[in-house]
């Protein structure tokens, strides 16, 4: 085990070079709906339990199913209303279980990125080959069902190994060359994209995804009231938008159709979307578009800039 994963060098906010999004926009805004499938009876991972109760854990299972049966349509309609294309963190087995949802998102030109096969299959304990196979399966599944060359990754249930990012980038290259496997949502160290050092040396970035703004973290872990969640989203936006003037920032709202789309919560989310998208200098975009733009325009300079703060060879 390592004391530091070694993905990025220290890079102080006070010293960042100015970046700008297309058309001079200050803040890149994206929404990442997690569209997940949890199994009722998954094989028991030796390192993490899927459900707190013995099979059948009908309570936890059924609220997540609510998200697909009921919540998805609500969230999709609200995103349509504000001109937001979702960047889907996808349990890729959902392509087989619920193709109706995939078809609607594809029709809207939403982005699909890999969130593993099921959110009840954890990376913990996998061999390198197993994790590589799982990642490859997930990326091939997205390609087969949507024609998209998967660019981003969020490990299933945020379960990682030391090699997760390396493997994702490498499988992306094997399948799609430099168009596949270019960004990760798994790291929470920054409000801007940052270059990530991989063993392959492939150009690869971390795109801010935000646990703080994640509806499940807000509602389940931090137990915030729905209207307060809406206020948190606006407050977070206000600060990043203001700082975007000097820095260029990214704000993501990661959602779950079984949280944000519950009848008592959608209003707060909708009000925040209305507020955020009413600002002129917001680039309403997707995770992949942010990653591609950054890689093309800022990645090389950023690598050199970061190196200046770290006293030795840096990524």
């Amino acid at each position: 085990m390592k004391a530091d994963p070694g993905f990025y060098g220290y890079w102080p906010w006070a010293e960042r070079p100015k970046i700008r999004w297309p058309d001079g926009k200050k803040l890149a805004f994206w929404v990442a709906p997690n569209i997940e499938f949890y199994e009722l009876n998954p094989p028991a991972n030796p390192h993490r339990k899927a459900w707190p109760q013995p099979y059948p854990a009908n309570q936890g299972y059924s609220i997540r199913d609510y998200g697909n049966r009921v919540g998805h349509m609500r969230q999709m309609e609200v995103l349509d209303k504000y001109g937001v294309r979702g960047s889907i963190s996808l349990s890729t087995a959902l392509c087989e279980h619920h193709p109706e949802i995939i078809a609607m998102c594809k029709e809207r030109n939403w982005e699909f990125f890999s969130h593993g096969i099921y959110n009840t299959r954890y990376t913990y304990g996998m061999s390198e080959q197993q994790e590589r196979d799982m990642i490859r399966d997930s990326m091939e599944t997205i390609y087969r069902h949507t024609g998209q060359q998967c660019k981003g990754y969020l490990a299933p249930a945020l379960s990682h190994s030391e090699l997760t990012l390396d493997l994702f980038a490498e499988v992306g290259t094997e399948l799609f060359g430099n168009d596949g496997g270019i960004y990760t949502c798994d790291l929470f160290h920054d409000d801007q994209p940052t270059p990530i050092q991989l063993r392959s040396g492939k150009p690869f970035v971390s795109i801010p995804y935000s646990l703080e703004m994640n509806d499940t973290i807000a509602y389940v872990v931090n137990k915030v009231e729905p209207r307060r969640y809406g206020q948190m989203l606006k407050d977070n936006f206000d600060r990043l938008y203001a700082e975007g003037d000097s820095h260029g920032t990214v704000m993501c709202i990661p959602t779950h159709n079984y949280q944000v789309s519950c009848p008592h919560r959608l209003k707060a989310f909708e009000e925040a979307l209305d507020y955020i998208t009413s600002h002129d200098d917001v680039w309403v975009t997707t995770g992949a578009e942010i990653a591609e733009y950054y890689l093309e325009h800022y990645y090389a300079d950023a690598q050199a800039n970061v190196a200046g703060f770290n006293g030795k060879e840096q990524g």
């Binding site: 499938f37 009722l40 087995a93 087989e96 279980h97 096969i117 304990g125 996998m126 080959q129 197993q130």
Partner: peptide
């Protein structure tokens, strides 16, 4: 280190639910 093979097998990966309690 590796998980048992069943962890990368998905017998219920198909249309609808992964059980027979109700229809999707």
């Amino acid at each position: 280190m590796a998980l048992d093979a069943e962890h990368l097998m998905y017998p219920k990966r198909g249309y609808g639910m992964d059980h027979d309690r109700y229809d999707w």
